[in-house]
Design a protein around this nucleic acid. Structure first.
Lengths: 245, 245
DNA sequence: CGCCGTGTTGACCAGTTTCAAGATTGGTGG
DNA sequence: CCACCAATCTTGAAACTGGTCAACACGGCG
């Protein structure tokens, strides 16, 4: 079932860019040094997946670290009863897929057509042993995931629908590529958002409509949001004490 | 505000066991090798906290890795509005407190009287640079947290109250100290459980009562649970497809 | 031009929360 | 050893948020 094989030669679904045509990906994640970037560039190989394709599946053996170059992906857990929880969205320049165990505990799926770079786990481990900076990048990656997931837990456990939606939009605003201003591109569907927020797609739709009618955001079509009032969003997201005496 | 200082000499709240009286803690976490255990034992120092005390606070500088020896602790995020989400409970032999950033993003609080060992972050980092096995332990620790939190996300985002309670009990059963059989000691209060499960304490209480009346568990007082039917619990926890055709 | 996937909106419903009493429990001191 | 007290837990009834079901709208594409 593994979609991405160890050395990116045989791939059942993902189209491999031959070494010759590998584009010059900015191989540094936002935190990595030039040294790390160079080391990674050497062992990375480019892949393509198209909208809806599975990059790896729950249960596949985990043998690569990925960096998303273009497009958007979702990391989700599927339950026996057909319910789904999205653990994270992956946007350009972000890493995903590395957890130090035998098999993936969630699946990665392309939301749009996607370009990514794959780094074989074995090589990553070798690099980590040799280059301290790589160790740091790995630890930072995992630590970052832990911190992000802590906020996600609060969201799912203790926030209302409106607070979740507001937090979500702020999160996307933070991750917005430079120069994008307050216009957010929602690559994902309402169902994806719902499964990330722990809500139904109807509630997501209604909540966004409410934000629109409250003049906090504008909807330029279902997949483009203009944030009119960032502070209002912040107030809605952070569960303030209603009446601080 | 930091309760535990770098080299465990001055401590405002936690009582330090002098080096002389430091007991022979089993310094190996469940996964660590003897080599790692020995290295850790050398740099660890014992601490005590009593029921209700804060071990470290959201915002404190993070400069230690801890291992809990005895008792139980909770890791929680407190929000502005006074809501609380517990990210994890810490039971004996489990590590906590290490995230590679400047300050803690959650607080650790003693549920019962607690004995723990503290390893200064600086020393841990030095060890990690020198001993590959220590690196592995750290990566495993972080990876384990990520995997555990993924399940927690599913629970909070997509499970009903009954499913959450069942999952929770199964989780405790898994972590039960050897020889404890099917008797679970609930060190934490109903409110703690509620804040872990993303429910109210009333709902937790009712749900446990339901499980009792369904002959799935017995309650020997509020803090002692006997699991009568593990399989029933599993069925209740895993959201099965209701009618597989 | 009409179709299909996706998004929106409405009405009703259910599970969980909220509010409010009581009931246990465990610790303390007589 | 027992009685009492405060904290915690349980239980009940009403209220509400978000879910479910269903109809309709929009928009891109053949």
């Amino acid at each position: 079932m593994s979609v991405v094989e160890q050395n990116s030669r045989k791939t059942s679904n993902g189209k491999v860019l031959s070494d010759g045509e590998t584009k010059s990906y900015p191989c540094s994640g936002r935190n990595s040094t030039d040294e790390v970037a160079a080391a990674l560039r050497r062992i990375g190989s480019g892949l393509h997946f198209s909208r809806g394709q599975t990059i790896f599946n729950q249960g596949d053996s985990a043998n690569s670290l990925f960096k998303l170059v273009k497009g958007a992906a979702r990391l989700c857990k599927h339950t026996a009863g057909g319910r789904r929880q999205i653990a994270d969205f992956v946007l350009p320049e972000e890493f995903f897929g590395f957890v130090r165990v035998g098999e993936h505990k969630l699946s990665a799926e392309a939301i749009t057509d996607v370009t990514l770079v794959s780094y074989p786990a074995r090589q990553i481990e070798r690099l980590a042993d040799e280059v301290p900076a790589v160790r740091k990048v790995l630890l930072d990656f995992l630590s970052g995931r832990v911190l992000g997931m802590q906020d996600h837990l609060v969201m799912l456990g203790r926030q209302t629908a409106t607070e979740r939606a507001a937090s979500f939009l702020l999160q996307l605003l933070d991750r917005n590529p430079p120069g994008r201003g307050k216009v957010i591109d929602l690559a994902m569907s309402r169902l994806d958002i719902a499964d990330y927020l722990g809500l139904t797609l109807e509630t997501v739709s209604r909540t966004l409509a409410d934000l629109k009618h409250g003049r906090v955001i504008d909807l330029k079509g279902p997949h483009r949001v203009l944030v009119r009032d960032v502070d209002a969003l912040r107030r809605l997201a952070e569960d303030e004490a209603p009446f601080p005496d």
